[in-house]
């Protein structure tokens, strides 16, 4: 029943594709492997060097580290899930009904890796820096919506991926807190080199 509802929502969103070429192009670029992940990476990069005083810089650098650790954990968690469960992609299950605007990924549909990573980035940052973290949820949501729009994920894949991203962010924060001496050492070294 959940999968039926999931397919209904999927077809409602994917049904919007193929109507306006300009919107299709925008969604394809948003869903691509390069644009939004690059935006995330650039924001984390900017965060590392931002802050008007040492205190705010320290907080930003912790946020960047937390986001990076969360992203690593999200990747790992999705890999583990993929070993246990393989849900077919929408275009594999309904080859004639899906408006596919993207290449055909070969990995399992559930959980959505992009959603896990996007939400891990946003949540990992939000846990340490609320303002930037909140902003990062916008590209994460755009990426997720675009992935459904172009026909490579069901909404449930996205929800599962997002849940993984959020959960692992708390784990990342815990790891950052437990292993505090290591990031402190990294930051001290970078500070000595005038890079943090």
């Amino acid at each position: 029943m959940i999968f039926n509802a999931d397919a209904t929502v999927f077809f409602w969103i994917n049904g919007l594709a193929g109507k306006v070429p300009f919107i299709d192009d925008i969604m394809s670029v948003l869903a691509s492997d390069y644009l939004i992940p690059l935006v995330f990476a650039l924001i984390i990069f900017a965060l590392w060097f931002s802050g008007r005083d040492p205190e705010s810089r320290w907080q930003n650098q912790r946020a960047a580290l937390c986001a990076l650790i969360a992203m690593g954990f999200a990747n790992l968690a999705v890999e583990i899930c993929n070993d246990f469960y393989d849900r077919l992609r929408p275009f594999e299950l309904y080859p004639d009904a899906v408006n596919l605007l993207f290449y055909q990924p070969t990995d399992p549909s559930l959980p959505a890796n992009t959603a896990a990573i996007g939400f891990a980035f946003a949540m990992g940052t939000w846990l340490v820096n609320r303002r930037v973290g909140l902003f990062l949820f916008t590209p994460a949501l755009l990426l997720c919506f675009a992935r459904v729009f172009v026909g490579v994920h069901y909404p449930l894949d996205i929800i599962a991926g997002a849940a993984i991203g959020i959960v692992v962010s708390f784990v990342a924060l815990l790891v950052l807190w437990i292993g505090k001496p290591i990031p402190t050492l990294i930051l001290k070294l970078a500070r000595r080199l005038y890079l943090a």
């Binding site: 691509s32 644009l35 990573i117």
Partner: peptide, 25 residues
Amino acid sequence: AISWFFITEDRIVPGLTGPDMALWF
């Protein structure tokens, strides 16, 4: 740079893996 990257070639194709992208970034 972003316009050059997306306009010169079709980027909606399978390409770099996540770790590759992280490394090159």
